[in-house]
Amino acid sequence: MINIAFFIIAALTLGSALAAATNPKLMHAALSFAIAFVGVSTLFFWLGAEFVGLVQIFVYIGAVAVLIVFTILLTRREGEQLRGFNWSGVVVALAVFAGLVWSILKSPSMSILPPEVSPLTVKRIGEVLMSDYVWPLMGVGVLLTVALLGALILAMEDKRE
């Protein structure tokens, strides 16, 4: 039953990801991307990482997906000409996939079952973030601030006369 849930989630995620990668209609592809990321966060829930799943929904659906649909809307003038699709990419992607699956199947240490662990609480994540990973956290804070300012400056209209 739990496994059935996993396969449904995985099929939904991969199906909508494929739709996002190949659908010629830009807006439909962007919305499939959103569904794919809901699927990924459900996978995180299924694996017991609730916090990461929620952060994923928050960041990707609440912010990145909205940004992407807005960017599509703002850059839509020629829209229809951009349906080009490069078939050599399919070959490369399939080759990489075959290589990855082969190496996964070859390594016997991968066919293990999950051990019983106590659920990860948000408090524990907070404690770890604030003690062991406090410098990376600061770094991410600085990075996000810089990204915010950089994006603003890049997207700002030139005020040239």
Partner: peptide, 18 residues
């Protein structure tokens, strides 16, 4: 009753925009 209930509220709520 989940551990990150407030985060759940805002994460799901932000889907409204899309």
């Amino acid at each position: 009753s989940i551990d990150g209930g407030i985060l759940f509220f805002f994460a799901i709520g932000s889907t409204t925009e899309l």
